[in-house]
Design a protein around this nucleic acid. Structure first.
Lengths: 337, 337
DNA sequence: TTAGGTTTGGTAATCGATTGCATTTTTGCT
DNA sequence: AGCAAAAATGCAATCGATTACCAAACCTAA
């Protein structure tokens, strides 16, 4: 039940004022070495520790930053958070995590609570498609940074990967391997990341002089089951596709499993490329080609952009767009025809 | 740059005192309905929001809890954190995450910073084997709860799974399937979880009247590579084992891959059971038997124990040990002989 | 000796909210 | 109308630290 010692306790002990104690502890040059030594000794003897809450109230900075993600139990977001943490901790910042489960209501609620917890910044991978909910953050002058799933807002920085390039590379790779009837199974295209990956897919086809077959294009949520279902409908088309670019590793895996169940050989009869480089894609017996989004780097970079923004708080608002380059990882599921 | 409005601003606006405003906002019955209405209206008009920092300083409670884990980018800890979050958020608590990377120095540093960030509790999966670093937390009267990787400390609650039972069930399952020469590849046994899993393994053998072969027992860190290496050494023994219980899914996978590379059939020639139910274990073409630790429930339960502890803060210290029952999940890697 | 400069340390306001106690206003009752 | 009880609000301290401004004490040089 040790009552915490404050600078007042130390002051009383030494018959000086709290102001002196504070200055001594903060290496203020207006304090003589003699008293400083006394204070430091008393402080350590009394197990003094600065109360960060009081400091935060005085300074108006909590040294906490909020991170909002759809979920924390996926490798991608887990790694991003890890990157953010590793970059921010050494600077004395703590990371407060919130999950939205892709619900915009929850996302709003999370932002709300983070704001009045007085966080020094909000790093978010949003599920919103409109900027309205973020106006308030801007108004309060709280640094806001998007990562992965961003929105286009003036004066707001973001760290993303080039999703267009990711979609393009994956598709071009399949084309280069000789596949010509390439399907696309992607996520909700009202989200920029999915829209961009899709655009990359289309562009790659166009650049190769291949035509875009609307019936080859499926929009669905990321899950094994939806991957299987996608195959079921694609396989009935005439001519049926012989390759698939997905914006999700889970869809890719579901598709591969279904293809095998139906007796197709992957990649000979049907090639598949996923997206995100989830761990299981390289653990499979027959590994899955995918696109690496460098989540650790994304997290680190997001944190760096935040720190930069904090430093220049007084100056003009800066808008920084960092776009990481995705890496195509070719594995068994698309290796040869 | 909207300067935040405080209760003083509202007070000035209405020509009353801040005390009245505070009471009105807190539904204190000493305030007349008339003024309360006025205050509420002014508050919403002026976009008032309570400054939690000031509140925290006054109350001595920050409504933040610290969660310390080896890492956040694994499915197991990610899920535990998710469970904690989901349970704690509705009660107004925020979760501050720290990673230790299994380093005890980092763990100490994390505890230190959490303490002077004035967290209301620390939930931790420790890498320590001694209780000394936690004395300070106890002294400061900050609720401390261990989960998964715990230490035995008087008056400290914990939420774990029955690791002994997990090891026992996995081993007994292999025995029931007819395997008699069962090896064990586990983690550092100075950590309780690994020691217990190992004990379960031994007990299952003893109960079945099988003898314990010391050369079948390997202690190593969790990784694919170490799994492969374990197989390399086990396979040279005479008589060579024909099954393996591991305390890690990664070791199990590494072992399976190496076995296949060497031409063995899994599970006919050699059965394998892992531990933790990592996602990839069920995504593989040939799935991996494992032990489910119910991480989401573990997280939720840990949070509940914390909330309970907070509520009874004034009363005697309570020590609550929650032990979840692990579930053996039988899959391809051990299904038949 | 004295005006003026340096050190060193103290005083008191501030950050934003809560709350025990005192005071004022209102109400109710005779 | 008079007055005690009840209701509504104000005053000021508190949580723990920082810091602008002020005030001693000491020193220096003419």
């Amino acid at each position: 039940m040790a009552k915490k010692t404050t600078i007042y306790d130390i002051a009383k002990e030494l018959n000086i004022t709290a102001a002196t104690v504070s200055r001594a502890l903060n290496n203020n040059p207006k304090i003589s070495e003699a008293t400083r030594a006394l204070v430091l000794e008393a402080a350590s003897k009394m197990n003094y520790e600065q109360n960060k809450l009081a400091l935060a109230l005085k300074r108006g900075r909590s040294h906490n930053v909020g991170v909002v993600v759809p979920r924390v139990d996926s490798n991608f977001f887990g790694s991003v958070i890890r990157g953010i943490e590793e970059e921010l901790n050494p600077h004395g910042y703590h990371v407060i995590i919130c999950q939205t489960h892709e619900s915009t209501e929850r996302e709003s609620a999370n932002i709300e609570t983070l704001l009045n917890a007085q966080v020094d910044g909000i790093l978010i991978s949003t599920s919103y498609t409109e900027t309205k909910p973020f106006k308030k953050v801007i108004d309060k002058n709280v640094p806001l940074i998007f990562f992965d799933r961003k929105l286009q807002m003036d004066g707001v920085s973001s760290v993303t990967i080039n999703d267009f390039e990711g979609g393009y590379k994956a598709t071009k790779h399949l084309i280069d391997m000789g596949y010509k009837r390439i399907a696309h199974v992607g996520g909700d295209r009202s989200l920029l990341i999915y829209k961009d990956r899709f655009s990359g897919y289309k562009q790659a086809l166009l650049d190769a002089g291949l035509e875009i077959n609307e019936s080859y294009i499926i929009e669905t949520k990321s899950s094994l089951q939806n991957g299987a279902m996608a195959i079921q409908s694609l396989i009935n088309l005439d001519p049926k596709p012989n390759a698939l670019v997905s914006s999700s590793d889970f869809v890719a895996l579901g598709a591969i499993q279904e293809l095998k169940r139906l007796g197709y050989n992957v990649p000979q009869d049907f090639a598949v490329v996923g997206f995100s480089n989830e761990p299981f894609t390289k653990f499979m017996e027959s590994t899955i080609s995918t696109v690496n989004q460098f989540p650790l780097e994304m997290g680190r970079m997001t944190a760096k952009v935040f720190l930069e923004q904090i430093k220049n708080a007084s100056k003009v608002k800066i808008e920084k767009k960092v776009v990481l380059d995705p890496e195509l990882i070719v594995r068994d599921s698309s290796k040869s025809k």
